[in-house]
Design a protein around this nucleic acid. Sequence first.
RNA 1: GCGGGCGUGGCGAAACGGUAGACGCAGCGGAUUCAAAAUCCGCCGUAGCAAUACAUGUCGGUUCGAGUCCGACCGCCCGCACCA
Length: 867
Amino acid sequence: MSGERYDHREAEPRVRARWAAARIDATPDLNRGDARPKYYVLEMFPYPSGRIHVGHSRNYTMGDVIARFRRASGYDVLHPMGWDAFGLPAENAARERGGHPDTWTRENITQMKQQLQLLGIAIDWDREFATCDASYYRWQQDIFLHFLEHGLAYQGTSKVNWDPVDNTVLANEQVVDGRGWRSGALVETRELRQWFLRITAFADELQDGLRTLERWPERVRTMQANWIGRSRGARLTFALDPSTPAPAGIEGIEVYTTRPDTLFGASFVACSVDHPLIQALRPRADLDELKRRVDQLGTSQEAIERAEKLGVDTGLRVMHPFVAGRTLPVYAVNFVLMGYGTGAIFGCPAHDQRDLDFARRYDLEVLPVVLPPGADPASLVIGDEAHTGDGTLFNSDFLDGMDPASARQAAIARLETLGAGQGTIIYRLRDWGVSRQRYWGCPIPVVHCGTCGAVPVPRDQLPVLLPTDVSFDQPGNPLDQHPTWKHVACPKCGAPAVRETDTLDTFVDSAWYFARFTNPDFEGGPVDPVAAARWLPVDQYVGGIEHAILHLLYARFVTRAMHHCGLIDLPSGEPFEGLFTQGMVTHETFRAPDGTWLFPQEVEERGGTMWRRGTDQPVVVGPPVKMSKSLRNVVDLDHFVNAYGADVARIFVLSDSPPDRNVEWTPNGVDGAARFVQRVWSLVADHAGPSPLKGDAAPDGVGEGRALELRRFAHRTVRAATADIDGFRFNKAIANLYALVNEIRRDGPNDDALTWARGEALELLLRVLAPFAPHLADAAWERLGQPGLLAAMPWPEFDPSLATDDTVTLPVQVGGKKRAEITIERGAPEDAVIAAALQAGDVQPWLNGQTPRKVIVVPDRIVNIVM
RNA sequence: GCGGGCGUGGCGAAACGGUAGACGCAGCGGAUUCAAAAUCCGCCGUAGCAAUACAUGUCGGUUCGAGUCCGACCGCCCGCACCA
């Protein structure tokens, strides 16, 4: 043992310099003759929020492992990086600390880029851009104009959270318990003119396309399908009962339902407080009060749905379409939204939980019409739970005896005959409101003219640049308050007009950046058709599960819309062929007696409990949660890399936990990874004697004994670890490498054969380790005197004859419990396996001398003797 | 509230429906050391001297065989359209 230590402070920068000189991160030239199959790896680009911590590193490390693995496996790899740089936090920072959002953002980008480089992530930085670069958002404005021309962008109105004290629109995140986060004022709801993108035009395609995404997690596809929410149902109109007083001009209420089969169980009709009928009845004290309460909930769906179900009886009644003389009360309620369906529903309490809760509260009739299987129609009582499952229709006239699915058809047919309604398909998905009343975003390229209306900014006048001289000392949108910026001549008639002061939702920025990466300098349009055709779709996209719905759906939509406008040629419309959703890095939280959060380096353990470092203050330790600056449970990347090295961070965040699950950052786990690095190094430093690494021929004896065992183990490890990387089981790949290190270190005869086998195993180890711990692997390669860079070498191959054993050990079960093991030739015929199993000594006592009823043999896996 | 997911030793985990606990951490014992750190070797689900029994959030089901499939429940996590 030489005792030589691996010095990451010396090795990591040196190895990175060698990579840089060899340009291992460069994207291969499109036009070269010997192009290989392409592979586009992309991590969701980050919001430049400040310094990164070790928690951020996991996403990029995973992408880097994939990129390095694919590069070695013979692909032309594109692995770019950029910055999702517009958004609220920069504006908040400007308001709180002064300065300009642009300055704050650029400083963060500089820092984060350095830190990513420190981690050794092999990114082609030549393609870097930030969404706040005018050279990027200029093309986004161009895309917006195309959408406008194709009817995919339009103006409408929608509700926003309004802070009456700050006179500003609040994000849902900025509404805390119904109050503005800064002012504390009760939030109001306002209806504003806004820009929308017509995502609903692609609802069917977006839903159907999910079926083709075979390399997406099933749960993400399910969530998106539910979000789009295509449903078949019926629109029908309940005619107002002429004997009740109705507002002039309103003769009926149109509702949408997915359950026309339950129409005979209807006991009320419920309208949104914003429904035209309810508006026509106002002002009226009880309705006004309900409207006020609804408005105070804000616009978030969660708040609305969690609120207690409330309603006001309008006093109006409507007539049942199927039953002459039967009328239903009409309520205004707080749980029906104007934006979904027709803004009105009929309630069938027996078969819908929400309707049942409402009916119980207001003492409305509960009439079951679907009889659960096996239930008795005479004694069936609906308690606190609605029956939403299958059954047989009863109490339902012409539908009696049908199952719900047929009853739906029959009810729709009858409605259509009566002229009272028709079958239809609707979507839960709403058009995408992209207007934001904020400064730090992409300006919407439109001018509002008193005579010409909304006029697109001519293409030759793009980009509409954000003004830099803005002030954040007053609330509201700085663009709106800017003294000159918005005042321009109408592009059409030349009369004085004003610019649109709304900017685009930052989800628009991230909905097409992956396409721009294929040629970020292209001047002929948003996307270079040649480069996009070469590189798209992204072969492997990596990011957090929190983006399962919105970001991914918007990107799928924009890709289709761009294809529709001829901006991109991607008939599938699917930008991401493979998707992997990674888990977060978590850490315990620490809290001082006075309630302030403490950084991990501010606490220490003494006598089994945690104390504030150097004091006698006890520390409250909280459970591990996602690393975040606000809770201070973060480990700074620069400090960590200085102390342990980038590779220890890389190994740690990928070992221990499956990549799609969270991993808890612990000091002990870090030490384990650091120990592994040193073990690898000592194997390298101590390697001497005959070795394939020096070109020595295999000595006699490598085909037997320990040498053969080690060779088999090493080749098996390459096979398993390769499959693990390919299948995103990075934790298992690393566990296999740990096991290989243990195996190389195991005692054995001190002979040339084993020494040579160790050299072979060491080479295979380093080559498979290279994507995970690239600095260590290349430094070790150099230390072994090998020429060139591991980072540029092809992926190692294993010898199938060594990776497969010719005997297998089978467990023998009796009655499903393991009683013995037999070792037998791989692929032995079934009767030989049965004979060996029945003769096994440990099996005999369990047979009691009887003949088994049955013996189940799973070839090369298991034997089960059934008595 | 609605939609989606997860739950296995003291801890992170592994396990094509086929030997539950690979690999790592912690712990325990030993070697080395004047001593400690580091390093190395061994043990390590629970009960039991052992044979064995019991163990994958809880309860039930399918199967020769269930951590894995099905149903109900409990707990935690993600999303809910203006955080990114």
